[in-house]
């Protein structure tokens, strides 16, 4: 999908300070329906902080966050998630004492009634090949399997907006390839923001890119343009 849908997510002068550190500095950002947007920038650029302001995990120091033209400022993460938004945090975050199936059930049951949920759970389990994980607790699974559970949980309830913070961190080449394919597949039905600092990965996704630097937006354009931009190279190689 191209960038011609309506604006579904917007920040206005969003600022987040931690003591003296300005992690997000006066950011105006717009995301249109159907977009697959990458947020890139070197470590410490403020991507995750910006991301957490969107998800309600952090209360911004100043500015506003609008989702579908409604201000979400001060809403707890559960309200924002319940509005149909799937979130994967940067650090892997699972329920170690539950099974893979229970994870999917938790995600699905939030939005589906009892009767439709069961079928939907089976569907997701099939789609993400989680059947083989059986009744083992997620805390006992290998890293790659855990990542599969996590991403399956994020999209299980068919969110219309999917926010992923570093989805490919710590993955092997093949896993990264599969993740890229998965992202494109998810994007067919959902608007997405992918936070990443690995340029290689961004190239593979190849769409609109927003570059963060020292808490502010440095440049916003198509991936090819951004990657050939001198300032971006400097930010990544220099500093």
């Amino acid at each position: 999908m191209a960038t011609k849908g309506a604006v579904v997510l917007e920040t206005r002068s969003l600022t987040m300070r931690f003591g003296g550190v300005v992690a997000v500095d006066n950011v105006d950002f717009e995301l249109r329906e159907g977009e697959l947007r990458c947020l890139i920038g070197p470590n410490g650029a403020g991507k995750s902080t910006f991301f957490k302001c969107l998800t309600g995990q952090l209360l911004p120091t100043a500015g506003d966050v609008l989702i579908q033209d409604r201000s979400m400022l001060g809403e707890p993460p559960c309200r924002i998630a319940a509005a149909g938004i799937g979130v994967k945090t940067q650090t892997p975050s699972l329920f170690n004492g539950l099974t893979a199936r229970e994870h999917i059930a938790l995600a699905v049951e939030r939005h589906h009634g009892r009767d439709t949920a069961a079928a939907r759970i089976d569907e997701v389990i099939d789609r993400f090949n989680l059947g083989d994980l059986g009744r083992r607790l997620v805390g006992e699974l290998a890293h790659g399997q855990r990542q599969r559970v996590e991403i399956a949980m994020v999209v299980a309830a068919d969110p219309w907006l999917v926010l992923l913070d570093e989805p490919a961190a710590g993955m092997t080449h093949e896993e990264v390839d599969r993740m890229v394919a998965l992202i494109h597949e998810i994007n067919r039905n959902a608007t997405m923001i992918i936070v990443e600092h690995d340029m290689q990965f961004i190239r593979m996704i190849g769409d609109q890119v927003t570059v963060f630097h020292q808490g502010a937006i440095l440049i916003e354009d198509h991936v090819e343009v951004v990657l050939s931009d001198a300032r971006v190279r400097e930010v990544y190689l220099g500093a």
Partner: peptide, 8 residues
């Protein structure tokens, strides 16, 4: 945190 991000 995870539970909350699932909307609970």
């Amino acid at each position: 945190v995870r539970a909350e991000l699932l909307g609970y």
